[in-house]
């Protein structure tokens, strides 16, 4: 079991899951704000860049490609 925070809220996941896997597993579908509204995972393999988040202060991380680490601070990105 691992714990990360998403915009300050705690979210639990399983060790080894990607950040996208943790978020989808927790029932979340949108974690980025784009011109057309919320976005989350689309391609699942690092191609589409829909799933970008900030992780521990570093912007532009593809949530579907980054393995979640206990204590990660994930934040929403707003990119019109």
């Amino acid at each position: 079991m691992i714990r990360i925070t998403v915009d300050g809220e705690p979210v639990q996941g399983r060790e080894g899951q990607t950040i996208a896997g943790v978020l989808v597993g927790a029932g979340r579908t949108a974690w980025r704000t784009a011109q057309t509204g919320g976005r989350g995972v689309f391609c699942g393999i690092g191609v589409c860049h829909d799933c970008l988040v900030s992780v521990n202060g570093v912007e532009g991380v593809r949530a579907c490609r980054r393995e979640a680490v206990d204590g990660d601070r994930v934040e929403r990105e707003v990119r019109p």
Partner: peptide, 24 residues
């Protein structure tokens, strides 16, 4: 198709096979 909850078939497959989670 830009609504959250729409994914590619491959994404649904990858999330199931890699992370053990369902897209919906």
């Amino acid at each position: 198709w830009t609504l959250p909850g729409v994914t590619t078939a491959g994404a649904a497959q990858a999330l199931a096979k890699r992370d053990g989670v369902a897209v919906g």
